[in-house]
Simulated scan of single mutants.
Amino acid sequence: MDASTARAVLHYVLAGGCRIAVTGTAALDPSRGELVLLPAAARHRISPLPGLRGVSPPPPPTAAGGTGPADPADPADPLGPAVGIAALDGPGGPVRLLSLRTGYDPRAVRPLVAGLPRAVLLERRRVEAAPLLRDTLRLLAEPGRRPGPGDRLLVLRAFEAALALAAGPRPPGAAHPHPGIGRTVAAIETRYAEPWTVETLAREAGMSRSSFTAAFREAVGTSPARHLTARRIREAARLLAETGLPQSAVPARVGYRSRVGFHLAFRTAYGTTPGEYRAAAPRRA
């Protein structure tokens, strides 16, 4: 992993409850259906909740359904398997965790990561209210599922969805943002190549443009247009670095009708041209 690549870890509780002690901050006690996001993969230890005796530390997660190291920040393993299942057995009942690891370009998500604590607990109701995140976690946790070449991309998508959820403030007393915002975030995530405008995104949400823009900014932490641009440029960077798609075909593939507009947006996001980014890709791999 290149020095310009950051890494993140997610732990999703499938059964029971545990304690995740994070270096430099307060411990978190997630239970079934809750997700802990460590946006900078801070060192941490997973253990049974206090009061449970005779329970060993969780075995390290490897591939889904297996076991492996519990601390994803092990310096000998800079990234590790993308998907793993860890299990803790004890008198308090079984505890199962879906553990995910991903690398990402910090420049693409700097506004979302800035200001987040070293570990964020996303309550079950918030995860359930985010269809893209919820469904990706369920897919990765399916019993008997075998690791595949698309795991890294799925985990990256789960990280991006969790990051947007963690960075988006909630109104006091509200369980989750307007459901229309969730629909538009999912639409941007999966249908970024469509010719979206703020007006069409507002229609997708079933809201007026002004109400939609305000609600989106409150929930996600940025404007709809900026979020759409960031999603498109992230996908463009992936295509340039990981595929042989002709560079001339990339703008249209991610929703740009103007090559000039695409080049300007890419250079603003990454500080380099698409061609220079592709040329440097082998060194980042």
Rank of each mutant, 00 (worst) to 15 (best):
T23H: 14
T23M: 12
G24V: 11
G24W: 08
T25L: 13
T25H: 13
A26V: 11
A26E: 15
A27R: 12
A27I: 04
A27V: 06
L28T: 02
D29V: 07
D29P: 00
D29F: 04
P30N: 03
P30R: 02
P30C: 06
S31M: 08
R32M: 07
R32E: 15
L35H: 09
L37C: 04
L37P: 01
L38F: 07
P39Q: 05
P39M: 06
A40L: 12
A40C: 10
A40R: 15
A41L: 03
A42T: 13
A42P: 03
R43G: 11
R43E: 14
H44F: 03
H44T: 00
I46E: 10
I46W: 00
S47C: 12
S47R: 14
S47N: 10
P48C: 11
P48N: 05
L49H: 00
P50E: 07
L52Q: 13
L52P: 00
R53D: 15
G54A: 09
G54K: 05
P58F: 09
P58S: 12
P58C: 06
P59Y: 09
P60C: 02
P61R: 01
P61L: 03
A63V: 08
G65T: 03
G65M: 05
G65W: 05
G68T: 10
G68W: 06
G68Y: 09
P69K: 01
A70L: 06
A70S: 13
D71S: 05
D71P: 01
P72V: 06
P72Y: 04
A73Y: 00
A73I: 00
D74I: 02
D74S: 02
D74T: 04
P75G: 14
P75A: 15
A76N: 10
A76L: 08
A76K: 04
D77A: 03
D77F: 01
D77E: 10
P78T: 09
P78C: 10
L79W: 05
L79T: 13
G80M: 01
G80C: 00
A82E: 03
V83I: 14
I85P: 00
A86D: 12
A87R: 13
A87L: 13
L88C: 13
D89T: 11
G90M: 06
G90D: 04
G90C: 12
P91V: 09
G92E: 04
G92R: 07
P94C: 01
P94K: 08
P94S: 09
V95C: 11
V95F: 01
R96A: 15
R96Y: 07
L97Y: 05
L97K: 03
